[in-house]
Simulated assay, not measured.
Amino acid sequence: MKKLADSFVSAIKDNNFHDVAKENIEAVIDSFLQEGMVKDIPFLNSLIGLLKTGINVKEQLFLKKIIKFLIYSETATPEERLKIIEEIDSSKEYRIKVGEKLLYLIDKCDDYDKAGILGYLFKAVNERKLKYKDFLKCSLVLDKCLVSELDLFLKDDRSLYTVESDSDLLNWGLLAFAPFEVTLNNSELNVPKLEGGQLELKISDAGALLKLHLGDYLQDRGNELGISRMELSEIQQYLDKLEQYPEHKRFILIKEYVVQLCNNFKISDDDFNNLLTAILYNVPFLIYDLHTSITVYYKIQTKKGNDYNIGRWQKFYNSRNGSQLI
């Protein structure tokens, strides 16, 4: 196991997946496996060599998870990647070496989407934005979550959560109980009275770290949806599917949808306006949340040097509100 773990650390150090197109990542990984390109990576070749009889379904899925982790964890220079791993291993704070621990965590992922998220988080470790101990804390929460619900949590900008509606998020470790406060006050009759004591939830430390460090993951997930490349009929079908979600979750997904729709050049501005008008017909107040989400996304894309068709939204917003967006 030690030899395999050391080989995996070398694979992380020499990782050169930054040119891989993430928009169709599953097809890329399948092609990678089918064409035997895994043999070009010593670690994956060694792993295959340890398999008893070829590559069965379970083993192929494990390879997929490893490849997705490597694709999304790629960052910095090989020397910087190796340096951070050596620092963690030499700290003597952790009994299990980094390479072995990562293999264990990847194996525990119940699909390769989670392995990709783990890769994003380890990328933050390599960039010294996330401490290794916090990475491990996040991995514990990730192990319990449903990816679809984690996505919604990351996109959700709520500050108020309740035990009744958010118990799953609490059980998974994304939320925690807020400090329980009870105050003793005198009533008008000079009789002591207890006040407060309600159970309230807050975003947990791990939940806050996931929100902080998975911004690139959310953007890539949005790109994978392909909304900016859909035909009008496909867009309508996608909208119809959103009707199955509870209202709050549906609004979160609609915001993501509209943000991506601004950059869809397969539909006309009239099509865009008609779609938005239909969306807002029963929930006109949602335009202000969309306004905020699109403004934030536009500024992020501008900072990264990416093109974003803010003009399409601005025209629609001005026609409804008569004010400038930017």
Rank of each mutant, 00 (worst) to 15 (best):
K3L: 11
F8K: 08
A21H: 10
I25M: 11
V28E: 14
E35L: 14
M37W: 15
I41T: 14
I55P: 07
K58H: 13
Y72I: 00
S73R: 09
T77V: 09
S90W: 02
K92E: 15
K92N: 15
Y94M: 04
K101R: 15
I106G: 03
K108I: 04
D110N: 09
L118T: 03
L121W: 04
N126K: 06
R128G: 01
K131G: 13
Y132N: 05
L136S: 06
C138A: 11
C138Q: 00
L140V: 13
C145Y: 11
L146N: 10
D151W: 13
L152S: 02
L154C: 06
D156Q: 11
S165N: 14
L169S: 04
G173M: 11
L174F: 09
L184R: 06
E195S: 06
Q198P: 02
L199W: 05
K202M: 13
D205M: 07
A206T: 03
G207F: 01
K211M: 01
L212V: 00
Y217Q: 01
Y217I: 01
Y217K: 04
Q219S: 09
N223Y: 11
Q236K: 12
Q237W: 06
Y238E: 10
L239P: 01
Q244C: 05
Y245P: 02
H248E: 11
R250G: 02
K255I: 00
Y257Q: 06
Q260T: 03
C262S: 10
N264W: 14
N264S: 05
D269F: 09
D270H: 08
N274G: 07
L280I: 06
P284W: 08
F285T: 07
I287S: 08
D289W: 09
H291Q: 15
I294P: 03
Y298L: 05
Q301T: 07
K303M: 05
K304H: 04
K304Y: 00
N309V: 00
R312P: 13
R312A: 12
W313E: 07
N318C: 05
S319M: 09
G322F: 09
